[in-house]
């Protein structure tokens, strides 16, 4: 397995070298920032925003503190009824199920779990400890996740979110269980606690 992981990494590296003329990551400064004109978050540390073309026109950004494979913060900032959290590729149009405005907290978290499973191509994903928590001034909720990626690395996750005016605002953080989740957990908790919907 390690051979394949590394081989794939090399192929990926070579692809990046060959095709990416621009930087793949952009600095996120440790100061309040409005994500896609929709959600204000206040990081205390510098993060890196991943430039992904297919996400540019969607209400989502992905950040990482230590590299995508080690941790990721996904910010869903106003996903509308009928829209999926990530865009499905043309080759698999129903890869990601749509969000529905009428979803309960249980259903939103279940959707996040399903989306994570598809995104990481794993069936080893589960959510637990769903509970009500205010988020961005709304009656929100939070839940935790366990997942194992194809690289066999154990990961932990934490999501906090709420629906406002029929749109979903949700922050999802995942990182390696042994280190890179805990390394940024406090920072992420504080960002979740202070997030607000841009007026």
């Amino acid at each position: 397995m390690s051979f394949n992981v590394v081989l794939r990494a090399f192929v990926f590296l070579l692809l990046v070298v060959g095709l990416a003329s621009c930087q793949r990551y952009a600095m996120v400064q440790p100061q309040p920032v409005t994500v896609k004109n929709a959600l204000v978050v206040a990081p205390n540390q510098a993060w890196n925003k991943i430039n992904i073309d297919s996400l540019s026109s969607r209400p989502v950004e992905i950040w990482t503190a230590d590299g995508d494979q080690l941790n990721m913060l996904m910010l869903f900032v106003g996903v509308a009824d009928g829209q999926s959290l990530f865009p499905s590729p043309d080759s698999e149009k129903d890869k990601y199920a749509p969000f529905r405005s009428g979803m309960t907290a249980n259903e939103v978290v279940s959707l996040v779990e399903a989306t994570l499973g598809r995104y990481m191509d794993t069936s080893l994903v589960e959510s637990y400890d769903l509970r009500p928590t205010p988020f961005a001034g709304q009656n929100g909720y939070r839940a935790e996740f366990n997942l194992v990626g194809k690289d066999e690395v154990d990961r932990r996750g934490l999501a906090a979110g709420a629906i406002k005016d029929g749109k979903l605002y949700l922050m999802l953080f995942i990182g390696t269980r042994l280190h890179h989740y805990g390394l940024r957990a406090e920072e992420v908790e504080s960002m979740m606690a202070s997030a607000r919907i841009a007026s």
Binding site: N106, L130, R131, P132
Partner: peptide, 16 residues
């Protein structure tokens, strides 16, 4: 149930 609090809140909080 580990979603007990959430379930209870459905009955006390009016849906937004």
């Amino acid at each position: 149930a580990n979603d007990r609090q959430m379930i209870q809140s459905y009955l006390t909080v009016s849906p937004s």
